[in-house]
Amino acid sequence: MRIARFSIDGNVAFGAVEGTAPDALVLDIIKGIPFADFELSGTKVPLSKVRLLPPVLPSKVVAIGRNYAEHAAELGHSIVDDQGRPDAPVVFFKPSTSVSGPGDPIPYPSFSQEVHYEAELAVVIGRMCREVPRERVKDVILGYTCANDVTARDIQLSEKQWARAKGFDGSCPLGPWIETELDPADLAVGCTVNGEQRQLGRTSDMVRSVEELIVHVTEAMTLLPGDVILTGTPAGVGPLNVGDEVAVTIEGIGTLTNKVIKRG
Score class of each variant (00 low, 15 high):
Ala4Lys: 00
Ala4Pro: 05
Ser7Thr: 14
Asp9Glu: 15
Asp9Lys: 13
Gly10Ala: 11
Asn11Ile: 09
Val12His: 10
Ala16Ser: 13
Ala16Gly: 00
Val17Leu: 13
Ala21His: 10
Pro22Cys: 11
Asp23Gln: 12
Asp23Lys: 09
Val26Tyr: 08
Asp28Val: 00
Ile30Arg: 13
Gly32His: 07
Gly32Leu: 10
Ile33Cys: 05
Phe35Gln: 02
Ala36Gln: 14
Asp37Tyr: 07
Asp37Leu: 07
Leu40Arg: 13
Leu40Lys: 09
Gly42His: 10
Thr43Trp: 12
Thr43Ser: 15
Leu47Tyr: 00
Leu47Ser: 06
Arg51Leu: 14
Leu52Lys: 06
Leu53Trp: 02
Leu57Ala: 11
Pro58Trp: 07
Lys60Arg: 15
Val62Ala: 02
Ile64Thr: 14
Ile64Pro: 10
Gly65Ala: 12
Ala69Lys: 13
Ala73His: 07
Glu74Asn: 04
Leu75Val: 15
Val80Asn: 01
Gly84Tyr: 06
Arg85Cys: 02
Pro89Gln: 07
Val90Leu: 12
Val91Arg: 00
Phe92Asp: 02
Phe93Thr: 04
Phe93Tyr: 11
Lys94Glu: 00
Ser96Asp: 05
Val99Asp: 12
Val99Ile: 13
Pro102Trp: 09
Ile106Gly: 03
Phe111Ala: 11
Ser112Glu: 08
Gln113Asn: 13
Glu114Asn: 12
Val115Ala: 05
His116Leu: 03
Glu120Ile: 04
Gly126Cys: 07
Glu131Asp: 13
Glu131Leu: 10
Val132Pro: 06
Pro133Lys: 11
Arg136Glu: 15
Arg136Leu: 15
Lys138Glu: 14
Ile141Lys: 07
Gly143Trp: 12
Thr145Phe: 08
Thr145Ile: 13
Cys146Val: 08
Asp149Ile: 00
Ser158Asp: 13
Glu159Met: 10
Gly167Ile: 12
Asp169Ala: 12
Leu174Met: 08
Gly175Val: 14
Pro176Gly: 12
Glu179Pro: 04
Thr180Leu: 09
Thr180Gln: 05
Glu181Asn: 14
Asp183Trp: 09
Leu187Lys: 02
Leu187Gly: 08
Gly190Trp: 07
Cys191Ser: 12
Asn194Trp: 08
Arg198Cys: 08
Arg198Phe: 09
Gln199Ser: 02
Gln199Val: 08
Leu200Thr: 01
Leu200Gln: 03
Arg202Phe: 01
Ser204Arg: 14
Val207Pro: 05
Arg208Gly: 00
Glu211Pro: 00
His216Cys: 03
Val217Thr: 14
Val217Trp: 11
Leu224Pro: 00
Pro225Ala: 12
Pro225Leu: 08
Val228Phe: 00
Val228Glu: 10
Leu230Val: 11
Thr231Ala: 02
Gly232Asn: 10
Thr233Asp: 12
Pro234Ser: 11
Gly236Thr: 03
Gly236Tyr: 07
Gly236Gln: 04
Val242Ser: 01
Gly243Pro: 11
Glu245Val: 13
Gly252Arg: 10
Ile253Gly: 09
Leu256Asn: 06
Thr257Cys: 11
Asn258Ser: 06
Asn258Ala: 09
Asn258His: 11
Val260Gly: 10
